[in-house]
Write a protein that binds this DNA or RNA. Structure first.
Lengths: 196, 196
DNA sequence: CTAATTCCGGAACGAACATTCTATATAGCG
DNA sequence: CGCTATATAGAATGTTCGTTCCGGAATTAG
């Protein structure tokens, strides 16, 4: 009946993710989006709604594509500590490999918008909870294995690791030095070990 | 010779600190500043320069007034661990007492602007280095006292604590819960203890 | 073919933006 | 008082903002 879309909706949305991720919400103009996405202004509004809706969709896509460090494969056969270390290592490697030093889109959104916008605040908070719950599962397994201390609860340790991850993602924006980032990870991991 | 200023330059600048701190750079308009500062548009430009210069002055004032957690009194008679714990406790208390959940102006600036603006990037990076150097001094003293482990270098531990502090200041924006924030602090402090 | 839908470039819109300017009032000093 | 400098309020500037609309080209289904 009609002419089909000439662009891949998801691929274009991913471009929006990268632009918002890099510049933030306020500093990104619709003109910037038109130039970067490579589609027409009208197509942008028809497909994604207005600028704000597009941002929300971009943030949701970022979350759903596992770029928020969440969608890690949690192989139960591997030691819990190794799993956690891998998660941090991957996050640090991604930060160091990024020439734009974008950090984490979730963290950036948390700082710029979450306190003032209810919708984005909920997305960010939900993602935080999901991330921590995932961490808590692994930590609990490690405590059963005896490789993680029981001095602190699994929930507290999960919040601590999440906090460390967040800090690294901020630090990576201004000081993307391997020694600093991996050093932070190593000390955080050592805090998990038993007999402290 | 001339009519004197009818407003306190520093007091008005502090109002600008609070507004930029709360909303960020891009989301704050000059009209917002005029309304909040209570001075005339022309007086604003004559006294502080344009919006960007005002932001830089506000960030520098934030730094110089010790609101960035840096100007803590470092009493050498107190145990090093207590000093560090006080610093975190004060930072957490400030965050919890703030109804606007503004977090830390330095951290917010780091996320929003430091990667794209050289001047602000330098202010933020310098502040980070100064903060870490201060932490390192205290940590070295604790290591000499034997209350802080020597498994990790004082510099690495300082970066770790700074990272934890940063994470807390982000977490406080979206989840200002005492249990979460103090829990993170406690685990971070436990990572400093010897014989791990 | 026709009809329907989406593409695209670009014009047009009012609102908000940062910045500058005009005009007038006011304070200190000779 | 008279002079000077800076205060004030608010208009006016030109630009950019987000958003909508138009016209024609393109593509698919019937």
């Amino acid at each position: 009946m009609a002419r089909p879309k000439a662009f891949d909706e998801e691929a274009v949305l991913q471009k929006a993710v990268n632009l918002f991720w890099c510049r933030g919400y306020e500093a990104t103009s619709v003109q910037d989006l038109v130039d970067c996405l490579g589609i027409n202004r009208a197509s942008l509004y028809d497909t994604y709604g207005d600028k704000y809706e597009l941002y929300v969709k971009a943030l949701e896509r970022y979350r759903d594509t596992g770029q928020s460090g969440l969608c890690q494969n949690m192989d139960k056969s591997r030691p819990a500590l190794d799993l956690l270390r891998d998660l941090f290592t991957e996050g640090i490697q991604n930060s160091l490999a990024d020439p734009d030093q974008k950090g984490c889109f979730m963290v950036n959104s948390a700082v710029e918008l979450a306190a003032h916008d209810e919708t984005i605040g909920r997305i960010v908070a939900d993602n935080q909870r999901a991330f921590e719950a995932r961490l808590q599962q692994v930590i609990e397994r490690g405590q059963q294995e005896g490789t993680i201390n029981r001095v602190h609860s699994a929930a507290s340790l999960a919040t601590f690791l999440f906090n460390t991850y967040t800090g690294i993602k901020v630090l990576a924006r201004t000081r993307p030095e391997p020694t600093a980032l991996y050093g932070v990870m190593n000390i955080a991991m050592s805090a998990l070990q038993p007999s402290s």
